[in-house]
């Protein structure tokens, strides 16, 4: 039986390849550090100011 930590240890042993869903800048800084990224363009639904506000709101959560 596969150990429950096996997939996580696999991640630690592998080259990190990141799929970035959200602001491209987060992918840019990973590429600047030498990591491969793939960008999924997340777009807020058209015409929803509420959603735009939420899009920005998550940035407040550091």
């Amino acid at each position: 039986m596969e150990k429950k930590t096996e997939k996580i240890l696999d991640l630690f042993r592998s080259e990190l390849i990141v799929v970035n869903v959200g602001p491209k800048s987060f992918a840019d800084v990973l590429e600047k550090q030498g990591f491969e990224t793939l960008q999924v363009d997340y777009k807020p639904a058209a015409g929803g100011d509420r959603r735009m506000m939420e899009m920005l709101e998550y940035l407040g959560g550091y």
Binding site: V19, N20, V21, A27, L38, Q39, V40, Y42
Partner: peptide, 23 residues
């Protein structure tokens, strides 16, 4: 750039971490 996570994953099956910053 891809429209969905699935598209990105099938284009690069070795991708091993998804960084998510959506509402």
């Amino acid at each position: 750039t891809y429209l969905t996570v699935e598209q990105a994953a099938s284009a690069r099956p070795q991708a091993n971490l998804c960084q998510i910053s959506v509402p």
